[in-house]
Design a protein around this nucleic acid. Structure first.
Lengths: 343, 343
DNA sequence: TGCGTTTGTCAAAGCGGTTTGGAAAGCACG
DNA sequence: CGTGCTTTCCAAACCGCTTTGACAAACGCA
């Protein structure tokens, strides 16, 4: 059913019908009611593509989500982030365009979205050191919001990030207060901005107490259960093994727990573990009592907020960029305890 | 840069340029080369919206992913499924349109996609008993492929499913062969088609050996770590607790393992556990030796296959529906062992 | 050389909406 | 009754591309 057909059906011109549906003031209230009713009755909905072409607005937001080149891994937090953002889009009548591409093709995907004009804005995921995407997007003029931050460039773009440095600094402080001195960090891949900040936070906390960070106790891997398990085993085999672990995600924490179990060690008694909890819907860190002591911040909420900011930038007039750094909560669970002095 | 501008730049008509780019045979080879080169040099890309409007093809596939009404949960397997499908789309030049909606608004989302014509086809996720979506989609005439099956209706639509019934039947058989008689099933929500089939598989295997399925040993919940943990604890508290658990996902298996740990029980020795492994990228079930004994089938591969079938149906002429039921692998890991007769 | 066929290119008509610039109708006023 | 304002609606242009039908140029053949 096209607008033309539909308007003929009503005995009105396409113009009037379009205006009635669009909420413009130039139509009589009664006419509008009649049109709206008929639209509902006949199931008429304007064709998005045509409307997009005519208005220049695509009514869609693009997300480019990279899959690691080798193991085809999709970061599990994307699912929750996207759920949050998608909810906001849906309410505002926007669609979400997803592009899943291998790491190397990312730029091409962004360029594609920018050129073909089927999105009004973009969310940038997983910023890295020397991220080339920012320059590209600035050049296109397309509005965008970054989830995270570009290292060394906090100037003129919008972002939502958690205070990773502070969160991991606090987590390390907690472990230090409990008497731990050999503290391991199971981090994400080193080039990722959040991983760098987390590392800085931990190293900073250690240094503040006059403890030198031991490179052997810092691993930077994919954030999988398996990688965490392997790293934990390796570190436990050291001559002077760590008494505490900081894991960059709940999934990594599970890997740590499994490795401890392999060795007959009990988490929270023999070895302490602190994780960062993204509050994923399907992997909650306990209900009343947290399983893991954790720094936490909802990635779904971040998705929602990024979407809001982006939509505001698209529709609103050129406001200054919005930059939010969220503080993490620090929750105490059963996975931490005082360092065993005898060990 | 529009086609008109671009063609003026070249001193050709829009028609010729369009044809040169589109690969039509009516242009001289030399002209085509010149056009392609200029397009690359000036970064010209046809506007998708306009092309879509003109051709009637949207060059996009829609996915509606529901979030549970209460706890806002996004099924983690979506991420991997979408990664697989997205890869196929990208290669074929299709975009992926995602709609994240609350369970109740699902139908509206499908109708929306069908009416506004910004997708050429749809993937249906998580079919349930009496699923109303099938009827709706049939009515719209939009091509679609179901991931899973609609209960009691295997007639005229395309789907890709794993043989859930057989997989869980085999898993139960394995446990029975090991001497287990009290076998628990931690299943997904009862209305989901896959959950029903899995249940049937387990119950069937038990009945075949003259064992009555104990309703107390079957739980049907969200497939979260937490739900599995809670259900396991509850069952372990029974007067006659299970000696083996069948869990519907790796994440649930982790919940079982944690509950066993709480009780000081060792998985594979005191209690056996078999899971279904979707082979998610970030949650591998061990590397060489599987952690859990598992039935397994890659959900990413399923995503890929669904996408292929859908694209074939969209572009190709009306072929008969493609219906694939995949056999699961059964891999033996460290989580299963003979039933302790003394217990 | 003349005529029918390709071959390469183009003008113009859509695709299904939105939006601009009027026009007709209705009303008040002198 | 003519004039000036609103209000309500409409015709037509436009968004950027694809595609049909036509046309000039080049070609083959008698």
């Amino acid at each position: 059913m096209t607008l033309k057909e539909f308007s003929e059906l009503l005995g009105l011109s396409p113009t009037t019908v379009s205006r009635a549906l669009g909420g413009y003031p130039e139509v009589r209230e009664e006419t509008r009611r009649r049109v709206l009713e008929a639209a509902r009755a006949h199931g008429y909905r304007p064709n998005r593509r045509a409307a997009a072409l005519a208005t220049g607005r695509a009514m869609a937001i693009g997300h480019v989500i990279p899959t690691a080149l080798n193991h085809e891994m999709v970061n599990p937090v994307f699912a929750d982030f996207i759920a949050g953002a998608g909810d906001v889009y849906a309410r505002a009548g926007y669609d979400m365009l997803l592009s899943v591409v291998p790491d190397g093709d990312e730029l091409r995907a962004y360029r594609h979205m920018a050129n073909t004009g089927n999105v009004d804005g973009l969310i940038v995921h997983g910023p890295r050191a020397d991220d080339p995407r920012l320059g590209l997007l600035r050049a296109t003029g397309l509005p965008f919001v970054v989830h995270g931050r570009i290292p060394g460039d906090d100037t003129d773009y919008s972002f939502v990030d958690v205070d990773n440095r502070r969160a991991f600094g606090r987590a390390a402080d907690l472990l230090l207060d409990l008497g731990h001195r050999r503290i391991a960090l199971l981090n994400g891949i080193a080039t990722m901005d959040f991983a760098r900040r987390r590392r800085d936070g931990v190293v900073g906390a250690l240094v503040a107490r006059g403890i030198e960070a031991d490179p052997a106790l810092i691993s930077a891997t994919e954030m999988t259960e398996h990688a965490a398990h392997a790293a934990t085993r390796r570190m436990l085999d050291l001559a002077d093994p760590p008494t505490a672990f900081l894991a960059s995600s709940l999934i990594m924490g599970i890997g740590v727990r499994r490795a401890l179990g392999d060795r007959g060690l009990t988490m929270g008694r023999d070895v302490s573990v602190v994780i960062h909890d993204d509050m994923l819907g399907y992997l909650t860190n306990g209900t009343e009592v947290p399983i893991f002591t954790a720094t936490r911040s909802s990635v779904r909420a971040a998705g929602r907020r990024c979407a809001e900011i982006l939509l505001a930038r698209i529709t609103g007039d050129s406001a200054p960029p919005v930059q939010e750094v969220w503080e993490c909560e620090l929750v105490l669970g059963g996975s931490t305890g005082p360092a065993l002095t005898g060990a």
